[in-house]
């Protein structure tokens, strides 16, 4: 292959990545600004709260409970190698609250909510419903994006907090039923070990991941191509982008909260 052509291809790909970052950044700023500027659409906000928050609860809860249980088993097995089985409650708590609760919750919400938002808005675009909104004097960013972004920022931290508790409960059940831990001692160790800082980091991560999931769904939906293929591509790209951005944001936020 011609090396110049190869370099050209790499250059184009890099430029596309930077251009997309720029567009997403501008879209995010625009979306957030519309959250604070009237007119507001309370009905759409309530619907988004239900879809993003309430209806995601089973997925997040099930993910958390199995993760917490598996974590307890792994820590017990790993800790046994150097006689540190007793740290199961502490590590389950810190692992769930600081990392696994927010990250796995965020990823599950990306799979469920981002895909749903992207597919819905992309379908609205290809069926001219977005154009119809404009002709009915309704700004699509205010009507479609702002309620979803606000709902996600508010509900995902709550989901993450609930997931943290359920995850710890999963670890507790496994530890007390299978691994012989004392129930009261397990709970006491969990409560004593967790700090407010851990909980705050979890909630901040939740809010950030909520913003990412909603913005990515809306951005790819609004910029969808034509036809069924366009909708499919928008949905796939939105989930990929949201998942990668959640993991990257998690790394940055962990550095900010816990760098020594």
């Amino acid at each position: 292959m011609n090396p110049l052509r190869l370099l050209g291809g790499i250059g184009r790909a890099v430029l596309t990545v930077f251009a997309t970052f720029g567009k997403v950044a501008l879209f995010t700023v625009d979306a957030i600004s519309h959250v604070f500027r009237p007119p507001f659409y309370p009905r759409e906000f309530v619907v988004a709260l239900m879809n993003i928050g309430w209806l995601s609860l089973p997925v997040v809860g099930l993910t958390a409970i199995f993760t917490g249980g598996a974590l307890a088993l792994q820590i017990y097995a790993g800790g046994a190698r150097f006689n540190a089985e007793a740290v199961v409650p502490q590590i389950v708590a810190i692992g769930m609250v600081r990392e696994l609760g927010p990250v796995l919750g965020g990823l599950m919400i990306a799979a469920r909510v981002t895909s749903s938002i992207a597919a819905e808005i992309a379908t609205m675009k290809v069926t001219e419903q977005i154009d119809a909104l404009v002709t009915l004097s309704t700004h699509p960013m205010k009507y479609l994006t702002a309620p979803r972004v606000l709902a996600a920022i508010l509900t995902v931290p709550v989901l993450v907090a609930v997931g943290d508790v359920i995850g710890i409960a999963g670890g507790y059940v496994v530890a007390t039923q299978n691994l012989g831990f004392n129930s009261a001692a397990y709970l006491q160790n969990t409560v004593n070990f967790l700090e407010l800082h851990d909980v705050i980091s979890s909630l901040v991560k939740g809010a950030t991941f909520g913003l990412i999931t909603a913005v990515m769904g809306c951005y790819y939906g609004m910029n969808s191509g034509r036809g069924a293929q366009g909708v499919g591509r928008a949905t796939k790209s939105s989930v990929e982008a949201a998942a990668i951005m959640i993991l990257a944001a998690n790394f940055i936020l962990t550095g900010v909260f816990f760098s020594v």
């Binding site: 069926t127 001219e128 419903q129 154009d131 119809a132 404009v134 002709t135 009915l136 004097s137």
Partner: peptide, 13 residues
């Protein structure tokens, strides 16, 4: 836009 009404090809409901 308040002066306009529009019927879209696929109705766009």
């Amino acid at each position: 836009l308040a002066r306009f009404g529009m019927l879209f090809q696929g109705a766009a409901l």
